[in-house]
Amino acid sequence: MKIKKTNRPPRPASTPASAPASEPGALRRTVAEAQAAAPRRDRPAGQSAAGQGSAGQGAGNKTAGNKGAGSRGAKPARPAGRPDARPARDTGGRDGSRPAPDDGHQPAGTQRLFFALKVPANLVGPLREAQRKLRGNWRRVDADQLHVTLAYLPAVPVDRVDDLKRLGVTLMQDLAPMQVSLRGTGYYPNEGSPRVWFVKVEAEGLPELAQALRDGIHALGLETDEQPFKGHITLARKKGPAPRVPPLTFTHGWQAGGAVLYRSILRKTGPIHETASSFRFRAPLPTTPDPLAPDLLTPDSAPDTPPAEPAVTDPQ
Rank of each mutant, 00 (worst) to 15 (best):
Q47K: 03
N7K: 03
P12Y: 01
P189N: 06
D159K: 06
Y188C: 00
D314S: 12
R40P: 13
E274P: 14
S71Y: 00
K75M: 05
I233G: 09
A69G: 13
T91P: 04
P286N: 01
R263H: 13
V141L: 15
P99C: 01
L266E: 08
Y262F: 14
Y262V: 12
L123G: 14
P16N: 02
T224K: 05
M172S: 11
Q227I: 14
L206R: 06
L235I: 11
A242W: 00
A50H: 02
E129I: 15
R78M: 09
P79Y: 03
G104N: 08
G65P: 02
K118Q: 10
R140A: 15
A88K: 02
L113G: 12
E202S: 13
D42S: 14
Q255W: 04
V169M: 07
L167M: 05
G216F: 06
R86C: 09
R166W: 02
H273N: 08
P87D: 00
E274T: 14
L220N: 03
T234N: 06
A100Y: 08
S48I: 10
S71D: 13
V141T: 03
E226A: 03
A85K: 03
T185W: 08
R29E: 02
N61V: 13
K165T: 14
G96Q: 05
G93K: 04
L296S: 07
A34R: 09
E309N: 01
A155H: 13
R72T: 11
Q145Y: 05
A77R: 00
P177K: 00
E226R: 06
R166K: 10
R263C: 08
K238T: 14
A19P: 06
A69C: 10
P99I: 01
L213I: 12
V158S: 12
A203S: 07
P99Y: 00
A55P: 15
R160N: 12
W254F: 12
A276F: 01
R195A: 10
F198E: 08
A74Y: 06
T251W: 03
I3T: 14
D159Q: 10
T269A: 10
R89F: 09
N66V: 13
R280H: 02
G168C: 03
A259R: 02
G221E: 08
F250H: 05
G60F: 05
W138C: 06
A32Y: 02
P299V: 08
T249D: 15
A36R: 15
Q316H: 10
T287F: 09
G65H: 02
P228E: 08
